[in-house]
Amino acid sequence: MRALPVGRHALLVETGGPEATAALHAELERRRAAGLLPPVREIVPAERTVLLDGVAEPRALAADLARWEIPPAPRGAGREIRLTVRWDGPDLAEVAAAWRVRPEEVAEIVGGARFRVAFCGFAPGFGYLTGLPERYRVPRRPTPRTAVPAGSVALAGRYAGVYPRSSPGGWQLVGSTDAVLWDPGREPAALLVPGTGVRFVTAAGARGTGAAAEDAPGRPGGGEGAP
């Protein structure tokens, strides 16, 4: 790890990769919850970095971080969100062909994966989800769409994600959900925050009836640039 000062009260910690970032983020949150971390206002993970903001003595914390032994990020613990999905994305058949499976099997593969929110970005409420096996990674579309509907469930590279609002995007669209990913009147406003487990559940019935999202505290949990 390399800790770089950002202004007078922040550190940007370079980790070297997504797995190391997840491990450091989990350890920071664990130590903060246990009262073992100096006061930090915000801990913000990205793909290869973690930003620590609101640090009283960043140099002292940087020196302390260099001595830490950081275990792998724990799996199968903590909060899990289950998103009810209709597998009706316009790229479903194309993704199925790339995986050499039937379109209906895409739902089984994605629904069987245990995802984790690695970090957030691109737009408020957009979480980059890891957990899809490497053999199922697909590239971004060669030409992005000018408008992707809100609630679209998408895949690109090592990540899955759900578009919180209509926006341009180049990820492969395989499904849709009615879940509200971003609500300024909610605390936290983002439904999917870093460290949260995510499962995609097939909607009941042909028209996808049922709740759009279900919070399951304590249940097992699990960029390709801008989406």
Rank of each mutant, 00 (worst) to 15 (best):
T196D: 04
L129H: 01
G221I: 05
T209D: 13
L132T: 08
S152W: 00
G210K: 06
E80R: 15
R141I: 08
F126S: 03
V198D: 02
R31M: 12
H9S: 15
R141Q: 14
L181M: 15
A211F: 00
P103F: 02
S166E: 15
P39M: 03
S176H: 14
R140G: 06
R8E: 15
A97N: 01
D88T: 14
P149F: 05
G7Q: 12
P144L: 06
P72K: 02
W87P: 04
P144A: 09
G185I: 03
A107F: 01
W171L: 05
T84C: 13
V117E: 07
R100A: 15
P168T: 07
R82H: 11
A63W: 01
V44A: 05
W99G: 10
V162E: 01
L155A: 05
A206E: 13
S167N: 10
L181H: 04
P90M: 01
A20T: 12
G175Y: 09
G111T: 12
A34G: 00
D178G: 14
A113E: 03
P5E: 02
T196F: 03
P164T: 03
V6P: 02
S166R: 14
Y163A: 10
G16W: 05
G131E: 03
G112F: 04
P39E: 12
Y128Q: 10
V117L: 06
E69N: 12
R31V: 05
